[in-house]
Design a protein around this nucleic acid. Structure first.
Length: 928
RNA sequence: GCCCAGUUAGCUCAGUUGGUAGAGCGUCACAUUGACAUUGUGAAGGCCACAGGUUCGAGUCCUGUACUGGGCACCA
């Protein structure tokens, strides 16, 4: 029969002992992590409070929604750790916080994943048809869609899961259609045939920003175009000879003396036997290649423009799948690269290839699949950007949106300042259907009929006298407002995935309806992201936020680095150098992963991660664990009580509170300016370097001493400083700190229910430079003695006696403090400690500290030769210092121009160094 | 071609207004009844990329060079 809790009448002291003993020697993350996440969620801490305390301000973050294509990788782990650090910190600061999670349908990327699955069954999406294919897309989304969000829970992400959004859920889709319609009605969205970047693999248009440029080795072919009627030829250079088949002119610069007389003449297009003119256009750079350019208006953006200026015909020789069209004559049906090979061969055979040069070109590739992009003319929807970009740039310039680090501001502005219209239509199936409808009496409608509802990429098929205009509508209209027909067909294209992501910061809060959430949480506090989607996403959110909300979507943009491997390479599946965050969490614990990511996250820099960095974070977690374990094991009889008044603080207490205070300031300031590395490092130093190494050690004096009052004060302070430390650490290491907090709770006055909602530590006015000064002396003497022990190979366990001589007045004053003496005796493991030694001992080991000589009597132990070598080594170091110091003080200019304090302090150190050298010399002499 | 970062110990990186260079990891020595060996103590290890300049004084400010990474443009 189980013992009921209420029946358990164990003495409180036993419970304490038990709870302390329950802490195992080593921190084991797995159990802790399992416990706290559900507990926090159950308490509703992830949701913003419905009844916030008065004056509590809202603070919100929206997640950069990961694509529903896979699982958590290290980049996600970093991005979301940083967001969680910030939101937990703000929550503890008392803000009414919300972090909205969600996922993105991810357009081309996600469609590609499912298409690849189909490929394994040797099927294409066209085999399934649009409807069936979309069914399998939704199936995929259902199965693997939110896996990544589940993994975020493991990471400790304190998202409000009740507000989870997906960019294609019904509510969000309505927002997307509403946004489109508003922009359409305002005349900002237009449709037309334009030269766009076409990915023949994904078979869709891409926006300019979705094209990446890669340096590749290629060739520059010089081709002869003979004049009509003979008389030689003109040579043009090209990297894409297959486009020759679609040439409709050759252009030269009008100022180019070499070609001036040839303008207007006609040429025979090789291989095609068509005649084309030589035109003059200022866009041609006479210095490049031969100074003569072949013009292919249908397959090159620059040529398209030349074509417009000279009214040149378009010869479409490459189709949307990257194959040569019927217009390419005998090359019809060939893949573009196969055609290139054949064209070059044929030109060579006909003696029209003058030469081939190696040439470094930057290939335009699709950012999703890496296929070389083909510039093609097609019918697409565009969003006018100029005005929106201007407003976004203005908001950035005025600081309404601040970018951290600010070095990203300039590139961002220059992108906005040079913006071109945004091609927002995609010829894929997975995405938001464009909310535009056509009636059969519209140009597009009639064309759709002709092509069997498949595509209206090509233009000019229909020629109606009075066509009905396209209808943009949030819901499908019943009939055409122009002609009344109810036979309406929706545009077959979908919207660029970034169009919907661009609405994320307000659509997640319920836009276009006006909601409480929207009022409270827009604009959000900060957007946390990597720089790779700065233009693709961030800039667009600013533009669309200003357009629809009349306000920026966030005040701050925090750009973090990219996660790289040990060798500095970007992590990628194909390189096989990925570190799986889930594995790291299994191996080292979630807190170690988070702490390691935070510590490595230096503003504006990419980070290199390796096992060592996780290990060091894991060790830190264990150190904190054991320090807490020590404190808890020494709280026997301790009751919750307020801090003793400052009068009762001993030297070490004043010092640790001084250090704590500056740590609180440092951590808070570092987080304010998005520098988690500085915040976490400062905490590491404080916890390990100050609290564990010195304060906990020193506290052992009082804990084991007989003074009950001193012991009690020490217990209270140990608990207080530990409690403040874990509070500061909580945003970085939420699990372990929560676990420790629960263990500490019985000793805290009015503790919060959970550390997660405990208040953020405040400046307590505990700055104490005098205590810091005194502790510095303690540390100096202790370290000097330790060095001496180590150099003379005296085991630390052996107690030694120690005497100081020639102590200067400042040090003597400090040594009067009984604490100082006691600490030194304890930390340096001394037997007798004589601070005012008179006579020199007979045999001794010798060293110096900043304020005097240190003698360690050691009868019969001293190896004279070894001791001499040791002292000589010390001496040579000091002499080096003396030399440098003397040089400065011998410099007249320095004495005259440097500030007095500087000169004085140099004099003092020099004096000290001299004294030390003198003492060392004397002792060296004494040895021989 | 233009712009922005970076270059500091073997490795990864700190270094605030200019004042004799710091940490972690790794290495070496010593320590295992200790809160913690995922530990402690100590040591070794640096022409702060290079060349100039400003300054009494430069890792820090200025100019130039080299290399690395990134952004943008050109790309016939």
């Amino acid at each position: 029969m189980p013992i009921e809790e209420s029946n358990c009448k164990c003495p409180a002291i036993l419970i304490e002992l038990l709870s302390a003993m329950e802490l195992p020697k080593v921190y084991s993350p797995a159990e802790t992590e399992k416990k706290w996440y559900p507990a926090w969620e159950k308490e509703g801490y992830f949701k913003p409070s419905d009844a916030p305390p008065e004056g509590s301000r809202p603070y919100s973050i929206v997640i950069p929604p990961p694509n529903v294509t896979g699982s958590l990788h290290m980049g996600h782990a970093l991005n979301n750790t940083l967001q969680d650090v910030l939101i937990r910190w703000r929550r503890m600061q008392g803000y009414r916080t919300v972090w909205v999670p969600g996922t993105d349908h991810g357009g081309i990327a996600t469609q590609n994943v499912v298409e690849k699955l189909l490929q394994k069954e040797k099927k294409t999406r066209h085999d399934l048809g649009r409807e069936k294919f979309l069914e399998s897309m939704w199936q995929w989304r259902k199965e693997s869609g939110d896996a990544i969000l589940l993994q975020l829970r493991r990471l400790g992400a304190s998202c409000d899961w009740t507000r989870t959004r997906f960019t294609m859920d019904e509510v969000f889709s309505r927002a997307v259609r509403a946004a489109f319609k508003q922009l359409f009605d305002k005349g900002l969205i237009y449709r037309g045939p334009r030269m766009v970047n076409w990915c023949p693999r994904d078979r869709t248009a891409l926006a300019d920003i979705e094209v990446e440029h890669e340096d590749r080795a290629g060739q520059l072919w010089h081709i002869k175009y003979p004049f009509v009627g003979g008389g030689g030829s003109i040579v043009v250079a090209t990297t894409r000879p297959e486009t020759l088949l679609g040439d409709t002119a050759v252009a030269v610069n009008p100022e180019d003396e070499r070609y001036k007389s040839l303008i207007g003449k006609r040429l025979v297009l090789p291989l095609m036997d068509r005649q084309i003119p030589i035109v003059a256009d200022a866009a041609v750079d006479p210095a490049f290649g031969t100074g003569a350019v072949k013009v292919t208006p249908a397959h090159d953006a620059a040529d398209f423009e030349i074509g417009e200026r000279h009214k040149l015909p378009h010869e479409v020789v490459i189709d949307f799948s990257g194959r040569m069209t019927q217009r390419a004559g005998r090359y019809a049906g060939l893949d573009r690269f196969e055609a290139r090979k054949r064209v070059v061969e044929d030109l060579e055979a006909q003696g029209l290839l003058e030469k081939t040069e190696d040439y470094k070109l930057s290939a335009a590739v699709c950012y999703r699949c890496g296929t070389i992009v083909e510039p093609l003319v097609s019918e697409q929807w565009f969003l006018k950007m100029k005005d929106m970009a201007e407003r976004a740039a203005e908001a950035t310039r005025k600081g309404r949106v601040k970018i951290f680090p600010s070095s990203w501001e300039k590139p961002c502005l220059s992108w906005l300042d040079n913006i071109r219209d945004w091609c927002i239509s995609r010829q894929i199936w997975w995405g938001h259907p464009i909310p535009v409808y056509y009636c059969p009496n519209s140009a597009q409608g009639s064309q759709l009929k002709a092509t069997g509802n498949k595509s209206i990429l090509e233009h000019g098929a229909a020629s109606l006298e009075h066509p009905c205009p396209p209808i943009a509508s949030i819901e499908k209209p019943k009939k055409c407002p122009s002609c009344g027909t109810s036979d309406l067909t929706q545009d077959p294209d979908v919207l660029d995935t970034w169009f919907s992501s661009g609405l994320w910061p307000f659509a997640v809060f319920g836009w276009p309806d006006s909601s409480e959430d929207l009022k409270a949480f827009y604009p959000t506090g900060v957007l946390v992201t990597g720089h790779e989607i700065l233009y693709l996403w961030v800039a667009r959110m600013v533009m669309l936020g200003l357009e629809f909300m009349k306000d920026v979507p966030f005040h701050h943009v925090y750009i973090h680095g990219i996660v790289r491997d040990k060798k500095g390479k970007k992590m990628s599946k194909s390189l096989g150098n990925v570190i799986d965050p889930l594995e790291i969490m299994d191996k080292y614990g979630t807190d170690a992963l988070r702490f390691s990511l935070s510590t490595s996250s230096i503003p504006g820099r990419d980070m290199q991660l390796s096992d060592e960095s996780f290990m060091s974070a894991r060790n830190f977690a264990n150190k904190l664990w054991n320090a807490s374990r020590f404190v808890l094991m020494n709280l026997e009889g301790c009751r919750p009580q307020p801090l003793p008044s400052s009068k009762e603080w001993g030297l070490a207490d004043r010092w640790i509170l001084h250090e704590l205070q500056s740590t609180i300031g440092d951590v808070t300031a570092a987080l304010e300016c998005y520098n988690p590395a500085e915040a976490s490092r400062s905490l590491y130093e404080f916890v390990w370097g100050s609290y564990c190494d010195w304060y906990v050690e020193i506290s052992k004096v009082a804990l084991t001493g007989g003074d009950a009052k001193a012991k009690q004060a020490k217990q209270t302070l140990l608990v207080h400083v530990l409690n403040q430390s874990i509070a500061l650490l909580h945003p970085f290491m939420p699990y372990e700190t929560e676990e420790l907090f629960q263990a500490l709770k019985p000793y805290l006055v009015k503790p919060a229910e959970n550390l997660m909602i405990a208040p953020w530590p405040q400046d307590a006015g505990a700055s104490d430079p005098i205590a810091a000064d005194k502790m510095r002396l303690v540390q100096d003497i202790v370290t000097s003695i330790r060095t001496l022990r180590s150099e003379s190979v005296i085991p630390p366990a052996t107690k030694i006696d120690c005497a100081l001589r020639n102590v200067d007045s400042k040090a003597r004053e400090i040594l009067k403090d009984p604490d100082v003496k006691a600490f030194i005796i304890f930390l340096a493991r001394l037997g007798a400690f004589d601070t005012e030694a008179g006579a020199k001992p007979d045999e001794y080991l010798f060293t110096v500290f900043s304020g005097g000589e240190i003698y360690v009597p050691s009868k019969g132990v001293v190896d004279k030769e070894k001791e001499k070598a040791r002292l000589r080594k010390n001496l040579s170091q000091l002499e080096h210092m003396l030399q440098r110091g003397q040089a400065a003080l011998d410099n007249k200019d320095f004495l005259e121009r440097a500030p007095k304090e500087e000169v004085a302090s140099r004099r003092e150190t020099l004096q000290q160094t001299r004294k030390k050298i003198e003492w060392l010399h004397k002792n060296l002499e004494g040895l021989s």
